[in-house]
């Protein structure tokens, strides 16, 4: 039984807008939920490097190549900030990685879709980063200090990701007929997965009430999704691309778009591991880990030798 007085103090602190810091007392459920969310977020950054990394060697100009490299490097950096922040909750990165490698921990469903053409790089920056930023700006206001600070930094750095993606799409949409077709095809394939990556509908999302009170979750999935759609639809129209949703309508009364039904069955299948690239992505990560092991060991052995020398000297 956790001390009800402690919980009361903890909740009062959060209600007053104070941040919870690593050494502060926190309910076990809070710690667990944060580890789950933060590591899932970190894993998503790292796995997310793969579909885009695919295209670095094939980027169509030197400028695009440099931008994509910088972007994917940012994602590695963001993964690192997030692993670091998660470690403050008393779990180390090796453990977090082993949870990823054994399939115990999840990562964003979106990265289990393949990047088939160059336009997919545009679509990812525009839609996937766009959706992620919606979510992350909300999380930057969360109650756990290290997570919130990591989010602030990440949001600041990610603003260019979204723009470069849109810029790619814009060039394609205004390019040759083949390029335009490539852009529309990418939008057709990425739209629904991007809508889904913001998480299940509120009525299917358990524990939300407590997590909102604890400022672990700041907004409901549906609210974030709505904002994403409202902002993105005009952007698509602006460059002459069509959102692949025949039920999409602007409701002048509410000022919001209404959308067609979401295929949640597909979402849960991908989460379960049955997406087009789940196995491939996970294998790439476990292979990198296995192949890197002797390197990590060598560095430790070398450092130990130098330490020993220092002691003798």
């Amino acid at each position: 039984m956790e001390d009800s007085k402690k919980i009361e103090e903890f909740e009062a602190k959060i209600a007053a807008g104070q941040k919870i810091e690593p050494k502060d007392w926190m309910p076990e459920a809070y710690r667990k939920q944060l580890i789950r969310m933060m590591s899932q977020h970190a894993h998503s950054e790292i796995v997310g490097m793969l579909p885009e990394g695919n295209w670095i060697t094939r980027a169509p100009s030197l400028r695009r190549k440099a931008i994509l490299l910088a972007k994917v490097q940012d994602e590695a950096g963001h993964g690192l900030y997030l692993y670091s922040a998660t470690e403050t909750l008393g779990i180390d990165r090796t453990e977090l990685l082993s949870q990823l490698h054994t399939g115990k921990a999840k990562y964003s469903s979106i990265f289990n879709y393949p990047t088939l053409t160059w336009a997919d790089i545009g679509a990812i920056g525009w839609l996937v980063d766009g959706a992620a930023i919606m979510n992350q700006t909300a999380l930057a206001r969360g109650s756990y200090g290290p997570y919130s600070r990591a989010m602030v930094r990440i949001c600041k750095e990610e603003s260019f990701h979204n723009r470069q993606g849109y810029e790619i799409m814009m060039h394609l949409a205004q390019g040759t007929p083949e390029q335009k077709e490539m852009a529309q095809d990418a939008l057709n394939r990425w739209w629904w997965p991007a809508i889904m990556m913001l998480g299940p509908s509120d009525d299917q999302s358990p524990n939300s009430e407590q997590l909102m009170r604890w400022k672990v979750k700041m907004e409901s999935n549906d609210a974030i999704r709505q904002r994403f759609i409202d902002r993105t639809v005009p952007q698509a129209e602006f460059i002459g691309l069509t959102i692949p949703d025949k039920d999409l309508k602007f409701d002048a009364a509410t000022g919001h778009y209404t959308h067609g039904p979401i295929n949640w069955e597909e979402f849960f299948e991908v989460i379960k591991g049955n997406g087009p690239c789940n196995a491939k992505r996970l294998k790439a990560r476990t292979d990198a880990d296995k192949k890197g092991r002797w390197v990590r060991e060598a560095a430790v052995a070398y450092a130990a030798k130098r330490e020993k020398e220092k002691l003798i000297a």
Binding site: M49, K65, L69, Q73, G77, L80, G292, R293
Partner: peptide
């Protein structure tokens, strides 16, 4: 840049991409 996402440890992934850049 072919190492991107496949490096021996995350920190080294970042270092290699930096150099590639």
């Amino acid at each position: 840049s072919e190492w991107c996402g496949h490096g021996p440890i995350l920190e080294e992934d970042i270092a290699l991409i930096n150099i590639a850049l």
